[in-house]
Design a protein around this nucleic acid. Structure first.
Lengths: 245, 245
DNA sequence: ACAAAAGTGTTAATTTTACACCCATGC
DNA sequence: GCATGGGTGTAAAATTAACACTTTTGT
């Protein structure tokens, strides 16, 4: 983020400035965290333990930490989202993938007060996804298939955040960094195809998918990796994402 | 926006709720308002009359009006953007086109306090664009070619908002509603092509462009309109956007 | 008549799609 | 050997790109 140096006049003005002249909204981040489990696209939902909407399912999220002084203005939005992701999943760092999808700020979306939420979508590897359930109070957090999640009545306007995030995920799936965030550190082409099929909810031609994929190999985005898969038929070759072959 | 009815418990809780427990950020909307003038893509910049960054050029924008009570939570983000658009351009309603591009909330992007800005991009017709300059204090607001705007050092992080907005505009240009927002109420194919050329900064084949365009005609998105253009060569036929032929 | 730009036609190149077929492996 | 699914080949279809050519206007 590029920022510009202050003039002396600006600096003097800042010292005099009185905040709180106008009411301010609270600002939160809410996350649609996706992974693939048992060939279903799932998202992490939290059962709210407090009002409002107590007992209802909601996207994980929380308030953005805003410093109380000019010197300390708190954390960035991305940092807030990343922090919530870690806190709610209990997973170690590994950002996986995290992208903002926009601000959601209709009045009265929260009955307590004016709250503006910045929506994110996040991806975690399936292998890690399985750990989340175990690490948390089972009744508190749950992987729910996106289809089911959209049928439940979520708290606040989380339904619309989820829908927007899902659309964004589908848009981004063509990009390699997104595509590889939902498979293991090593993977086969059929594994990757299965993920695409689940997300787009349609079967894909194996041959054609393979050809699209092979461009990434030619471009050096991925490389062959050692390893095998146990299969009831011909085993596929294993690849890995290649950030610095 | 779908929202869910409160339970009685929720309602009771809301009554007790004490806001202001944590510091809150100020929230603004900032707009990249585009139009085409003299075959240049231009955006409206405001010369700041107050600190911080006094005298520097900035995107038009302002604080989101947040009500001070639970009953009145103020205006929506879209409404705030739409209001600023009207206030800064002095143009009558006619939304033209307005779309959110995301939240920009790095700490210290504003030296006074933590400010989170929601960026929008807006389109106004060229014919209207010319009026804006006249209606405002000339030294206050100015149409600046996007290329020049990106060379000037804009206030805050407006450079990054502008860049993001421009990218979004280019993405959306294929959609009819966006494409037609930058030409007159009636227009010719060459006029429309000129707009595309300016925005994508490349010359387009007239024949091929025409064919792409004609699909919209077949789909009934547009229709022929009466009228002519004064030209030094063969005049093109005139069309109009057709919301309910 | 001439220049200029609209509009039409045609063809090659590229990408997408569909589907046949061979191959390696576990059982 | 046989079923299963990985991997390869190929050809039709659709889209894109390049460019020649005809038409209509103002001068």
């Amino acid at each position: 983020m590029s920022r510009v140096r202050l003039t002396d006049e600006d600096a003097r003005f800042v010292e005099k400035y009185r905040p709180d002249a106008y009411p301010r909204p609270a600002v939160t981040v809410d996350l649609a965290i996706f992974t693939v489990i048992d060939a279903r696209l799932v998202t992490l939902l939290i059962k709210r333990k407090e009002a409002p909407y107590r007992g209802r399912w909601a996207l994980p999220g929380g308030f953005v930490r805003v410093g109380s002084s000019r010197k300390d203005q708190g954390e960035s939005l991305d940092d807030a989202a990343s922090r919530e992701l870690r806190e709610e999943t209990g997973l170690p760092l590994d950002p996986g993938y995290l992208e903002q999808v926009g601000a959601f700020g209709e009045p009265n979306r929260d009955p307590r007060m004016r709250v503006i939420s910045v929506g994110y979508f996040a991806l975690v590897r399936p292998a890690l996804g399985a750990l989340v359930q175990a690490g948390t109070d089972a009744s508190h957090a749950e992987w729910v298939s996106v289809k089911d999640a959209q049928k439940r009545t979520l708290a606040f306007d989380h339904e619309s955040i989820l829908t927007t995030a899902l659309a964004r995920l589908r848009e981004r799936l063509g990009s390699s960094s997104v595509a590889f965030a939902l498979v293991g550190k090593t993977f086969t082409i059929p594994e990757l195809r299965a993920v695409h099929e689940v997300i787009h909810n349609q079967v894909l031609d194996p041959g054609n998918f393979r050809r699209r994929f092979l461009r990434w190999l030619e471009d050096g985005v991925i490389e062959e990796a050692p390893g095998r898969r146990i299969t009831p038929s011909k085993p596929a070759s294993v690849y890995r994402f290649c950030k610095s072959c």
